[in-house]
């Protein structure tokens, strides 16, 4: 069972560490002393940061240890206040959070390339651990402005060694050379990338030369959404079929629609191939795919129902299904 939408947990900030310039790491525990629900690498939690603001932060602790959760937060001076509020938290402060949820699940493969830009390292940390424990062939390329801004860089290097962990600090060796890093696709290798939009755009462009579906990204969408109740349930009206289904927080539109017997052609089911592209008749989507162009996103006429959802504040989508 996953948490119902909006279900919150009373937690407490157990520990606050400054882990890099402008980055704090928070260790959170449940106030009732119980364990958190099991979660998988790539998961995040909602953090209610006050004044009705909700932010999503990736978990960077170990899924093996459910007595606490760890998040890493970069202070973004021009943000809408989420990171500033989190940076003001002290150990012992009560905090309302959600159970872990996963929009960036790690798929089974033989090889992995992890690619982090700055604070984008956080969701990858549990992935490295999982890949390592399973004896996979993997490397991490981690880029940042300078070593002192790169959270967890030293710990990762110490833990896994420089063979697997490549730290690329811009002030030492320049920016990530994506042509070199992604110029030679490997068989059965998945690429997991997280970082700022500019970096991910450049990564996506280069991965067009990789097998379809090799690249998985997590964009920092949540930070620009305002008070997004990230996986709130919403309704989808199927205009052709004439029915309406409710999409719960733990299901995709595709799954919910298929459950009522309506077929949608799909392939990767991960926002990567574009097969399930569906026309929107009304309503505002929150795009979570890696396929649509910026113009497509702006136009809001189509969406990939395998990953994308209704935007915050849009309780109902009408789709051409």
């Amino acid at each position: 069972m996953s948490a119902s939408a909006g279900a919150t947990i009373d937690a407490v900030v157990d520990q606050v560490d400054v882990v890099a310039d402008q980055v704090v790491s928070l260790v959170l525990r449940r106030t009732d002393g119980r364990q958190f629900q099991p979660w998988q690498p790539g998961a995040h939690i909602d953090v209610h940061v006050g004044d009705g603001l909700v932010r999503q932060y990736s978990l960077c602790s170990s899924p093996e240890e459910l007595d606490h959760l760890r998040i890493g937060v970069l202070h973004v001076p021009d943000s809408r206040g989420g990171s500033k509020a989190v940076h003001a938290l002290l150990a012992g402060t009560p905090l309302t959070i959600s159970e872990p949820r996963n929009n960036f699940p790690m798929r089974e493969s033989r090889r992995y390339l992890f690619l982090a830009g700055g604070i984008g390292i956080t969701p990858l940390i549990p992935m490295l651990e999982a890949a390592h424990a399973a004896g996979k062939e993997w490397t991490l390329v981690y880029g940042g402005r300078s070593r002192n801004t790169m959270a967890f860089a030293q710990q990762l290097e110490d833990r896994y060694g420089p063979e697997r962990i490549r730290i690329i600090a811009e002030d030492e060796v320049g920016r990530l050379d994506l042509d070199q890093i992604l110029g030679m696709p490997r068989a059965h290798m998945l690429v997991y990338a997280c970082g700022p939009g500019g970096l991910l755009g450049a990564v996506e462009e280069r991965c067009m030369g990789w097998p379809p579906g090799a690249l998985h990204t997590e964009r920092f969408v949540a930070s620009t959404l305002g008070a997004a109740a990230a996986n709130a349930p919403f309704e989808v009206e199927l205009a052709r079929t004439g029915t309406t289904v409710t999409v719960p927080n733990d299901k995709t539109i595709l799954e919910a629609v298929e459950e009522v017997g309506v077929r949608v052609l799909s392939s990767c089911r991960g926002g990567l191939c574009g097969t399930c592209e569906t026309q929107i008749i009304s309503g505002e989507p929150e795009h979570r795919d890696a396929v649509l162009s910026e113009e497509d996103r702006e136009a809001g006429e189509v969406m990939l129902v395998c990953v994308s959802r209704a935007a915050a504040g849009c309780p109902r989508l009408v789709l051409d299904l």
């Binding site: 110029g183 030679m184 696709p185 462009e205 280069r206 067009m208 030369g209 990789w210």
Partner: peptide, 12 residues
């Protein structure tokens, strides 16, 4: 790859 890679990028 890597010859295929740039050609595929251009086409995709």
């Amino acid at each position: 790859p890597p010859i295929h890679t740039v050609m595929r990028r251009a086409l995709t």
